[in-house]
Amino acid sequence: MSIGNSPDGNFPEDERPFEDDLDERLAERPSIGRALQQARIAAGLTVDDVSNATRVRIAIVHAIEQDDFATCGGDVYARGHLRTIARAVRIDPVPLLEQYDEAHGGRPAPTPAAPLFEAERIRPERRGPNWTAAMVAAIVAVIGFVGFTAFDGGGDGDTTQVAEGSTPTTSRPASPTPKTGKPDADPKPDPTDSAIAAAPRDKVTVQVSASDGRSWISAKDHNGRLLWDGLLKQGESRTFQDGSKIDLVLGDAGAIQLYVNGKKIKDDFQPGQVERLTYTKGDPEVG
């Protein structure tokens, strides 16, 4: 007598696993591109609107809505585009990222930015120390010290301050300035928090600082000419300037702090997020 099984050793019909039901549920789930397209239409947005909001090219947005991720340039970029577009059309990006990982062999392991872009970086030519410049600087420092000492010792007890970083260029003592009782000239303003706060109005100035880690950075001018391409280590910064436009690619936007035309950009970039950004002379409208 058998208990719990049919005489032939098979499971009863009502006790068989539910693999078929799981496959049916997965088949009914819309694709990633279809889900994004439906959310965009429901939000009343066009592909142009999504492209302007995310800075993802129109052709890439169209391709993703057709479930074609080849134009993204790899899983890391594809996941970044999915997260950015999902937020623009007001849906949760987490289920879409999980669905993408299931279809593409799981979430990619984090890859350091340096090896990923090693082939494209322009390595600076290694040079030895510039002994000529060091000798000239030393001679100038000695002459400046001697001149300052002679000038300071020849006065009648008056002391003259030399601005930090300047070198005296005259050998004769300056005429004493008569005291007229008028207040001194307007004091120099304190230095601002940003090195580019006094950015010229006729140009676009962008400063990139690696405040929370390191990130690969690429910057181009309005003609597409490469201004810089390399790894920005934590604590380092770069400043780029052009007459009309700066195009940036941030390999890890969460590690970067941006200052555009003297104003701090407060975008909530996530760690590991790839961002393509463009700034002009009028940016940002709200700093």
Rank of each mutant, 00 (worst) to 15 (best):
E120L: 04
R121G: 01
R121A: 01
R121D: 05
R121I: 02
I122T: 05
P124D: 00
R126M: 06
R126P: 01
R126Y: 03
R127K: 05
G128M: 07
G128V: 09
P129Q: 01
T132N: 03
A134I: 06
A134V: 05
M135W: 04
V136I: 10
A137R: 04
A137F: 02
A138P: 02
A138T: 12
I139S: 12
V140D: 05
A141W: 07
A141V: 01
V142I: 08
V142P: 06
I143W: 11
I143M: 11
I143S: 10
G144W: 02
F145A: 08
T149I: 09
A150D: 13
A150E: 15
G155T: 15
G157Y: 11
D158K: 13
T159H: 15
T160P: 09
T160S: 12
Q161C: 12
Q161A: 15
V162C: 13
V162N: 14
A163W: 14
A163F: 12
G165M: 07
S166R: 15
T167F: 13
P168C: 06
T169E: 15
T170M: 13
T170F: 14
R172M: 13
R172C: 13
A174L: 09
A174C: 03
S175N: 14
S175P: 14
P176K: 13
P178T: 09
K179N: 13
K179V: 13
K179W: 10
T180C: 03
T180P: 02
G181T: 04
K182M: 10
K182Q: 09
D184K: 07
A185Q: 11
D186V: 13
P187R: 07
P187C: 05
K188C: 07
P189C: 00
D190S: 11
D190K: 13
P191L: 06
T192P: 08
T192F: 08
D193W: 09
A197Y: 00
A198K: 11
A198E: 12
A199L: 04
D202Q: 05
K203N: 07
K203I: 04
K203R: 12
V204L: 02
T205H: 01
V206T: 01
Q207K: 07
S209F: 05
A210W: 05
S211I: 15
S211M: 11
D212C: 03
D212A: 08
G213S: 01
R214G: 03
R214W: 10
W216S: 04
W216D: 07
I217G: 00
I217Y: 00
I217W: 00
A219V: 00
K220F: 07
H222M: 05
N223K: 10
N223G: 09
N223Y: 10
